[in-house]
Design a binder for these strands. Structure first.
Lengths: 202, 202
DNA sequence: ATTAAAAGAATGATTGATCATTCGTACGGT
DNA sequence: ACCGTACGAATGATCAATCATTCTTTTAAT
């Protein structure tokens, strides 16, 4: 009755692959239809599998969307962490790399997604919980970046700046979702000014 | 056969009232369910009228949502114009009033709406056209505010700053939509720093 | 002023499509 | 022979939109 270790591993790997396959398909559907308009039958068609089979890997549609949202946030945080890790102690360098990297993080694909999930989070607590969690991680990353530069400031002053950066980071994402960014360079310059205003130890 | 002028006026007034009534109901539904999940029957119930009757005043559901979106944007622009009109020529004063006013403009109700419509605009051209139009008006208002302060700068430099302010203004709205703003004062201070960075004639 | 006729306002059951989810069935590896 | 994998038709709910119908208001003629 007991399955071999190899069999278990193969099964787990297949499950993972299937789930990823479903999430990829769901992403494609949500991208053009939105969370609510994306139907299970179309997701199934996109994934190249049957409708019923999807329910073997996810409890229901909402579970798929939540998993998709989480996967997207994780990917976003991965990029942010990379910026945070490579940050130095020179204000100019931080401002410059941060604004440039953030701008390049924006593609309309990711942005449209974030927008979709944020809208859902505005009314569905399961999604807003996810947003709260990723906000928390994002704040930590931002604090790690600016704290070395603003050593003299009070905890409260730093928190205020972290919060501002968080909102600005998010807003860029959302902006990119609505329409193609015309001139990344110009926008990066503009945000460099804004970031410098927030980060500079005045 | 020709109706009296008084009758026409009364009819027009009633039409206006009915349309507003429908839009109010639609707003309430979209607020808690989103554009797609909001059903005509629930909108009708909220409006206190029959489903069929709604179709006397709007061609279809999308037309209602577009009208609702437009009404919301118009209201938003009204507030922005008020800020723009009262702006002086002193940088500090501009930065201070602008950041404070913008923050106070945010209530989670309006924000959740904007979020919803932005998400829709990311895939529906009819909505994105609306966004493009309101962006245009918003840019004009922002340019009117900062141009007197940045007289020496090139057209390109000013455009870059206008664009940055536009994105920042929008992002605040989105942020407010996702969750309640904890400390408006702190956020206003943070954005004052950012705005000063963008607006200051360096 | 009264009233019959016409127009407009409002209803809600109905239609056909689509939705998320379930279930009976079949295939294929072990 | 067994069991996990996979299918897709079936189910019942819900959707946007329509339409036959009933009220209500307005108009025109007396």
């Amino acid at each position: 009755m007991v399955r071999t270790a190899a069999a278990v591993m193969r099964q787990e790997e297949r499950t993972g692959r299937r789930q990823a396959q479903i999430l990829d398909a769901a992403r494609a559907c949500v991208r053009v239809e939105g969370i609510h308009a994306a139907s299970m039958s179309r997701v199934a068609a996109e994934a190249g599998m049957s409708v019923g089979h999807i329910y073997q890997y996810f409890e229901n549609k909402e579970a798929i969307m939540l998993a998709l949202c989480e996967r997207d946030f994780d990917d976003f945080m991965l990029h942010i962490m990379k910026i945070s890790d490579s940050a130095g102690r020179d204000v100019d360098a931080i401002v410059q790399t941060f604004s440039k990297e953030i701008i390049w993080l924006l593609d309309s694909d990711r942005a449209a997604f974030t927008l979709e999930f944020m809208a859902e989070a505005a009314r569905n607590p399961k999604f807003s919980d996810l947003v709260v969690r990723v906000d928390h991680r994002l704040r930590s990353a931002l604090r790690a970046i600016i704290e070395p530069v603003l050593e003299g400031l009070s905890r409260r002053e730093i928190d205020m700046r972290v919060e501002t950066l968080l909102v600005m980071t998010r807003c860029l994402t959302v902006h990119a979702g609505t329409r193609p960014i015309g001139d990344r360079g110009a926008l990066a310059s503009g945000f460099e000014l804004a970031f410098r205003g927030v980060i500079s130890p005045s």
